[in-house]
Structure formats: C-alpha cells, structure tokens
Design a protein around this nucleic acid. Structure first.
Lengths: 217, 217
DNA sequence: GGAATAAATGGACCGTGGTCCGCTTTTATG
DNA sequence: CATAAAAGCGGACCACGGTCCATTTATTCC
C-alpha cells in the first residue's frame, strides 16, 4: 500500500514536508526573508487569537494588522486576501486530516478496505467541519477559491482512488465531485441549521450515498 | 396529476399568479406605491441593460442607481442588497423554468414517468445555467442566500416528489439535496472551466447519478 | 380639495477589502 | 565591511456595499 504523496498545504507558499512524518511539519518557503517569516507568524497568531475571541465572521484585515503591529499592506502581501488568511489559519488542521486519511490508522488510513475508508472519510470530514464551522463558512465564501484550493484537490484524488479500488464503474471523477459536494461547508451548515438535521443523520446519509454509488446494480 | 402549487417568485415581494397560466404573469405586490413600482421597473431595466453591456460581475449598485436616475438608497430599499437585485433580474427566467417542470409538457412536466422527469430536470437546469452562468455565479456568492431562496425550495420539493414517486427508499430529503448540490452554479462552473468537462458529460453524469440513486439494489 | 398619515426618496456617510508606491530592511556579492 | 539589488513594509488612498434620516411624495379619509 503506497502513500500517494506528501500532504499538501493550504498556503501556496508552503512546501511539502521533507520526511514521511504522520504529523505535518511547519515548513516554510525557504526563500522567504526573515522579517517576512516573522510577520507571517505574528499575523497568524493574531488572527487565530481574534477568531478565538470574536469569531471568524468578525475578523477584519485592519484588526489583524493592528493586533500584529504591522501595516495593513503586509497582511495582504503575505496572504493575498481575506480568504487566503483564513485558509492559512485552517492550514494546520487541514494537514492533520490529510495525514490521517493518507497515512494514519484504519478506518481512515490505508489499512482498511476502500468502502470503509470512504465512509470514514465523510464522517470525519463532517466532524471536523462541525468543530470549526464558522471558520470554514467564512473561508468558503468565494466560490472560485472553493474548488481550486489544494486541499480540495487532495481530497478529490483520495476519494477517486478509493472509488477505483472499490471497482466503481462510470465517471469516477464526476462521482467524486458529487460526493465531495455533500461535504461542502455551506451545504452542511444549511442542513444542520435550517433543515434541522442532526450530525448523526448527515453521517449516515453520507454512508448511504457511498453505498448507492459503490453498490450500483 | 395535480400541479403541486403556483410558481414561486424569487423576489420576496412578488405574489403568486392568479391563474394557472403555463407562462408566469408579471405580478406585483398590490400594496406597493405607484412611484415605488415605477422605480422598481426602471431599476430592473437598468440593471439588465448594464449586465448585458458589461457582465454581471461588473455591476455596481451605484451604477444601477445612476443609470436609473434614482438614489442609491432606493436600490437597496427595493431589492435589499446586491444579491436581491440579481435574483430579481433572474426572476423571470426562474419562473419560466418552474412552470415548465410543474405544468409543462413532457419530459419535464407531469405527463412523464418520474425518473425521466428527474433526468430532464437536471439536464434543463444545466442548460439554463450555461446560458446565464455569470449572472448565476454572482447571485450565488452568498452562501446563506444560496439554500434558503424560494426557487431552491421549489426545486427541492419537486425533486423530492419525483424521488418518492420513483419508489426510492431512504432519506429522500437528503438525497434530494445531494442531487441539487450537483446543479450548484459554482460547482458546475468549476467542472466546465477548470476540469475541462463538457456540457454533455455533465448531463450524462446527472442521469447516471439519478440512476444510481433511484435504482439502488 | 385639503389635511393627516404613511411610504418612498436620495445622497451624505461609514466600514471594510484591496491597491499602490515611496521608503526601509534584508541579503547577496566582492 | 561596503555596496547594490531585491524583497518587504506601511499607511494613505480608492471603490464598493450598505445604512441613515431629513425631506418629499403618494395615498387615504373627511
């Protein structure tokens, strides 16, 4: 069972880790200047603190800059835009999850059968989503960023691989995207908040969908 | 075969049509003052013109107000916010579609079997999406508006009804939302633009998904 | 028709995301 | 260590979405 690749960071600048550690390393773009790296760390820390205190929905770029004692331009230079900053804050968590489903123990990791792994993948996604829903919702706003982001690609590769190993016939890529669509933050939040669904229902709904797609007659 | 209900407008102010016409009427809130109605019309016209000229992505509220020779506050009073205005511009098209799948001829309308109607529903959605993609993308930005909007609810009711008539077992509402997720503008646009999928592939992908969900063994 | 009431109006105003560019700091080079 | 090139910096500035409220306009009732 060959791990497909290194975990891929949310931040465009970050590079793949050197080793095959199960937990991701805090790697940086080596060409980044010392002061830039320092400011990046200060900004991430400030952003995380502000999100903890006031919620991601009230995070303003000015506030982050001020809290980190840094000019506003620096925030944009480091993270591109607001969504980029939010992604960077989510980065750590994202990479843990990636490691778990690529290298970790069953049922998520490689030592389980594909259908079990698919089920576990969705269930774990839903739980992590629930844990940081507001942050994910904020980061999700821009439609363009939603699908192109590296973590999404990693997940898509992973799910496609599992579908193929489960001998699924048909347009695997399209089925993959359909499955991932079910885990979209805004979508899950809608079901939980406006449709009165419980987390358990969503989890078993995911497993049912996996069954329908993999056991099609 | 009983039509479930009247077409529901995108705009909160609009009321259901009086008759059972196949094509929707331009109905208004009767309590709306004459000057307000006049401005609404002027604004919708101006917005549509600007969108035609420069694309929905460049539409600003100031520009619409100026083009309609109206104060900016009026635009917001009439349509709530930018998404509300875009929805209002889409309203006409939306209601045509609603009429088509609720009262129109087969394969969309009531005189076809449920699975055929489901297939036609997705295919037609995808085509209409393609025709006004930029406008739909702009209107889609706000996650909260995405799922709560009246047309989405109408579609959900419709698809649920068809699934039940097709004797589908399981959590029909969840399956409905999954199916509709496949027709999300941002999602479809991503597949067409970034994944190099063709409209035909998406259409047959939809039909395949319908088959997997309705013919589950 | 005129007064009273309610609704609508418009544009000044505000907050926030994002850009720009002259200046400062770091780093590479000899 | 000196110097030059490159990278980073900061905060003034801009555009746009959205709010507010003093004033104007439509409607209703007598």
């Amino acid at each position: 069972m060959t791990p497909p690749s290194e975990p891929i960071s949310l931040s465009p600048e970050a590079r793949p880790a050197e080793g095959r550690a199960v937990l991701p390393l805090y790697d940086q773009d080596p060409t980044e200047r010392a002061d830039a790296a320092r400011n990046r760390a200060k900004l991430l820390e400030a952003a995380a603190a502000l999100i903890r205190e006031q919620g991601a929905e009230h995070l303003t770029m000015d506030a982050v800059a001020t809290a980190a004692c840094v000019g506003k331009g620096t925030v944009f230079r480091r993270f591109g835009d607001r969504v980029g900053l939010l992604f960077a804050v989510l980065d750590q968590t994202e990479r843990e999850f990636q490691n778990a489903f690529m290298f970790g123990p069953p049922p998520l990791g490689p030592d389980a059968d594909p259908v079990t792994r698919l089920e576990a993948f969705g269930v774990e996604s839903l739980r992590r989503l629930a844990a940081d829903m507001n942050l994910y919702l904020e980061a999700d706003q821009q439609a363009s960023a939603r699908y192109g982001a590296p973590p999404r690609k990693v997940r898509a590769r992973h799910v496609s691989m599992l579908l193929r190993r489960a001998q699924v016939e048909g347009d695997v890529e399209l089925l993959t995207e359909t499955l991932l669509g079910t885990l979209d933050p805004a979508f899950v939040n809608h079901l939980l908040t406006n449709r009165g669904r419980t987390a358990e229902e969503l989890e078993s709904g995911w497993c049912d969908l996996v069954a329908r797609i993999t056991h099609h007659c």
